[in-house]
Amino acid sequence: MDKNNIEVPNINSIEIKDIVEKGIKPKVSFFSYLRDMYKKVGFKNIFHDISEIIFIVLITLFTLCFAAIIIKDNDYIEVWQIYSFIFVVSPILYLLISFFSFFNTKQNGTYEVEMICKYNIYQLSALRMFIFSIVSILCNSILIFMFFIVNEEINLLRALAISITALFLFSSVFLYVLLNTSHKITKYFMIAGWIIINLALMISKNNYYNVLLTQLPIYVHLGLTISCIYLYIKSLKKLINFRSVKGEM
């Protein structure tokens, strides 16, 4: 066939641009979206309230260390109760920072001007929470490592898996509640619920809970951890595309 005879479909450049844009936009992956936002907005602007955040982190870490020391000094504490402690407190740091962060943004009179920016509060929050979760993992790991040094009965891998699972399980539920209910009470209730239910299980020495934390094969724990991370990323994606009703959250 003659090369010059090949028919070129007649699409004008605007249509091509349209097609390209429509095709590409949804394909940007979650992580490259976050990376892009991070580069454009910059650390200083994403964390313009960094001093408050650092303050919260320090206070929380201090309190948790204090609690850990008390537990360590108590001879009647069993290993599974340490796991349980880790499970309960792992999300707390994350929770406090995120909660403060949302509360703060809504309190500010700047809500409306920030909300109509290209990267608005929901998108920034997704990025911030993602970074918070990494910070939380690091802090929790340090804490666990300190436990490990004083008490070698603990399985480091299992403790880390429990900690990360707890963090992401909790934050997925936290995000779900944040995005799906407008009642403030529900939000507080679920936060209090998390702590109370777990503490109750720990104190009552519930057998299933014990088994779940200590006897489950480690790969099941890791599997759970990965599922929770997946769930968490999914809820962050939802946050990015979230459009609040009434401008309320």
């Binding site: 313009h48 500010n108 009179g109 700047t110 409306e112 001007v113 920016c117 290209k118 990267y119 608005n120």
Partner: peptide, 18 residues
């Protein structure tokens, strides 16, 4: 969504600032 916000300028009735 963000494409619209990209071409939008807005002064609210109660303008808040830091």
């Amino acid at each position: 969504d963000d494409e619209y916000r990209d071409i939008l300028g807005y002064l609210p009735q109660d303008f808040g600032y830091y």
